[in-house]
Nucleic acid binder design. Sequence first.
DNA 1: AACTACGATAGACTATAGTCTATGATTAGA
DNA 2: TCTAATCATAGACTATAGTCTATCGTAGTT
Lengths: 322, 322
Amino acid sequence: MIKNASLRQLKVFEAVARNLSYTRAAEELFTTQPTVSIQLKQLTDLVGLPLFEQVGKKIYLTDIGQELLKVCNEMFEALSRFEMMVSDAKGVKAGKLRLSVITTAKYFVPRLLGLFCQRYPGIDVSLKVINREMVLQRIVANMDDLYVLGQPPEQMDMVAEPFLENPLVVLAAANHPMAGKKNIPLKSLATEPFVLRESGSGTRLATEKFFSEHGIKIKVRMELGSNEAIKQAVIGGLGIAVLSAHTLALEHSNNELTILDVKGFPLHRNWYLAYHRGKSLTVVAKAFLDFIETEKKLLGETYLTRISGFPSKNIQSKKKKM
Amino acid sequence: MIKNASLRQLKVFEAVARNLSYTRAAEELFTTQPTVSIQLKQLTDLVGLPLFEQVGKKIYLTDIGQELLKVCNEMFEALSRFEMMVSDAKGVKAGKLRLSVITTAKYFVPRLLGLFCQRYPGIDVSLKVINREMVLQRIVANMDDLYVLGQPPEQMDMVAEPFLENPLVVLAAANHPMAGKKNIPLKSLATEPFVLRESGSGTRLATEKFFSEHGIKIKVRMELGSNEAIKQAVIGGLGIAVLSAHTLALEHSNNELTILDVKGFPLHRNWYLAYHRGKSLTVVAKAFLDFIETEKKLLGETYLTRISGFPSKNIQSKKKKM
DNA sequence: AACTACGATAGACTATAGTCTATGATTAGA
DNA sequence: TCTAATCATAGACTATAGTCTATCGTAGTT
């Protein structure tokens, strides 16, 4: 009986129905495909009829599945409306949001804040774009409400909510010998000079961890303190680099850079919205958290599709079908 | 954030909002008041604003609580609609329901079946009204789909869903010396002759258990094999009896009987819809289970208010206010 | 003041919900 | 045929949801 279902099951169902893919839904929900599979099986058992049918490798909603999707949308819409009313009642009319983000996040955070400020026009925002080291310092000093990080610091008791994919890609100059090749073996990179961010940066940590796990020792030719500098060094032929695909989002001309199609890349990382666990969040900070939680489905689609050359054809082709 | 709420919490909230009483809601949900209290506290913490306010001993919905009640009703209505669609899709258009009930249940089960058959006109119903002993035999022999009992047999692996209150009351002749008295001490009954059902009946088990737990030894003057016979014996002055309040529901003239206001009574028992756990229920039986699950709120109000002399003033006065 | 009724809280416990890794089955494409 | 992609299942584990009994606090009534 559907009334014994859980909202979690319904959320999972809705994500699968929208994506028409268990795996995509799992990624979106920051969980694994078997979890999605099990949740859907439980829901299907409750309903007593199949909600999806599989034709070849594709899944389609059954008629009953279509009806349940409508019901889900009604329900979640009703809950969203209620949340708006609650925020209004709480007087989220004015206040200040203090947000510190690491530098790569500057490519998308201002847009997020723009949307947020449209919804809550009375809220002031203080945005600091700084490197990871300084973010960590500010966390310790409790100087902000929330932080955007690519790698939450494990040595601190933080709550970290993933809200956006942060794919790390291999960048090379457009005229690089490997440009345009498909499925470049990872070993091929061992002879390439690398340009990396400074020790301590999240991207560097992730890069070193990945190559270390695959038994590849990379040659670091140069360390630079900013993403822009790294991109210029790559364009200048000084080496290749691993950077967040988000760093390409604002380029008005990407002809000088290319993303290499390397096996194992892009590394699927996330952006996290984080705060110290003991921190008592302000109403405004909670509103921003809720806003991000509500909008994060849209975020995944909006920002990655704007990155030229990023292998996001799955998302794009799916979008055309829907 | 309300989206992390559970449907259970919302159900509890809705029951409290409708009843404007934690205790009444707990009874309706067949659970305890602290459970309700905790669930509501969790929900309130999620919302971040009070959902009820207490003025004196009465609780009232806050404005936000009112809104949440609307949202709940929308959501549960959407789910109910979906269940209808599912039943249709499953083809609950025709079939047979085999139901056996103990004799006291004859006072209300036909009405239930009437409502059920209105909704599913193509379904045939076989209803057997028999004593408890025979019900148990039929369970063992797997002769029916579902059973209505006042006391599920503990020695069998049964699923038993409570769906209606079955209050056990003390009946006496209208001219009994204790008639009209308030808060009659339990000890006063020790000197009264009792007329009981046969050993093995659920009512008798419950009666003996209650008095045994209170250290009262009752004098059994007579055992009779039917509720009607017991009532006639009570009217005739042969003693008092403990019977389900439901036995009074069909009386066109209750002037010869009265319900004594004894401390500890009415005993709050339930009617159960039960089936053997290993039983694979037919689509029709499942539909009846779902029907009862959906309608059980209404049942509690409808049937008990019809019992003349039953102390149900709380329900009646609340109904007038709503 | 004593008693009753009702909601709130503490503490303890059980049930179940949710999740993961590993692996199997199936399909489509090269 | 092989590889890749995707969903299904098994088994194990953790987290949390739900619940109860006992008791306290408050308000209203007698």
